[in-house]
């Protein structure tokens, strides 16, 4: 009895989480425009997804925006973390506090206040993409900062001093000694920035140019409309993203597993 419950509860929750996505995936291969009625198999949703101009530009735009803002956020956040780590306690704790604001704040408030500052006060047009990119960097950089700081704390500070003693210039010591040690934090900050930017709706709605759409804003607008061609093509998009996520998770797990095996072998040897 106990065993059954221990198995049943997680399974039911998994069903709740995955059934909608899976059903949508099945229906994305059929001609039906509504869940429930079974119709013939077709790939036309996938063809539409990759050939319709607005869908394609929306996907490409979302990905480019995510990559661009993640690169900027990683640069800024990492430099900020290094600078704040070596600054006086007062300065570094002030930076850590301000850094926490976008993390805790609701995205609606962040997006709205940025829009007022940049668009209403400074008069920067949304068509320039500047508010949008700045908005996404503001969303992501604090998380990069938070992923890098622990790595700096774990680092052996004498290594940097040793490099200087051995004649390295500070710049070289930073690039050759500090950066390699915080690289894992930078990478996890970067991936986090990508996922945050891809999933964002609110900051984009308040700062994006009228003609530009991210996946989130596009999908939300599409659910208000009644275009069935777009609707079913989005089912296909959801399936494609689902498969991509599974692949990425698999690769990450395999990599982690391989690394673990390697470590174990080295430990034995």
């Amino acid at each position: 009895m106990r065993k059954i419950i221990r198995c049943l509860v997680p399974c039911l929750v998994l069903l709740f989480l995955y059934v909608p996505i899976l059903i949508l995936a099945v229906y994305s291969f059929t001609e039906s425009t509504q869940i429930g009625d079974i119709k013939a198999f077709t790939l036309k949703n996938y063809v539409t997804l990759f050939t319709r101009e607005d869908l394609r530009s929306m996907i490409v735009g979302t990905v480019l925006l995510a990559l661009g803002s993640a690169v900027l956020a990683t640069l800024l956040g990492t430099l900020g973390a290094i600078g704040s780590f070596y600054s006086k306690k007062r300065i570094s704790s002030a930076m850590a506090t301000v850094n926490q604001i976008p993390v805790i704040n609701a995205d609606v408030v962040t997006g709205f206040s940025l829009c007022i500052l940049l668009v209403v006060v400074f008069g920067i047009g949304k068509d320039t993409y500047i508010p949008l990119v700045l908005g996404h960097v503001t969303l992501c950089a604090p998380f990069v900062y938070l992923s890098v700081i622990p790595k700096l704390k774990q680092m052996d500070s004498s290594l940097y001093e040793a490099a200087l003693d051995l004649g390295a210039r500070p710049r070289t010591a930073l690039l050759r000694v500090v950066i390699p040690q915080i690289l894992s934090g930078m990478i996890s900050g970067f991936s986090l920035a990508i996922t945050l930017s891809l999933d964002d709706y609110f900051i984009a709605t308040y700062t994006k140019p009228a003609t530009f759409n991210t996946i989130s804003t596009y999908v939300v607008n599409a659910t208000r409309g009644s275009q069935t061609e777009v609707k079913t093509a989005l089912w296909a998009l959801s399936t494609v993203i689902f498969v991509l996520v599974i692949l990425i998770v698999l690769v990450m797990n395999l990599n982690a597993g391989a690394a673990e095996n390697r470590n174990r072998k080295e430990a034995k040897a």
Binding site: V19, T195, D199, V249
Partner: peptide
């Protein structure tokens, strides 16, 4: 599921 765009997940839920 956290990594799948939330708007697409909600679309799926909406259909169900």
């Amino acid at each position: 599921p956290m990594w799948i765009n939330f708007s697409l997940r909600i679309t799926a839920l909406k259909e169900i």
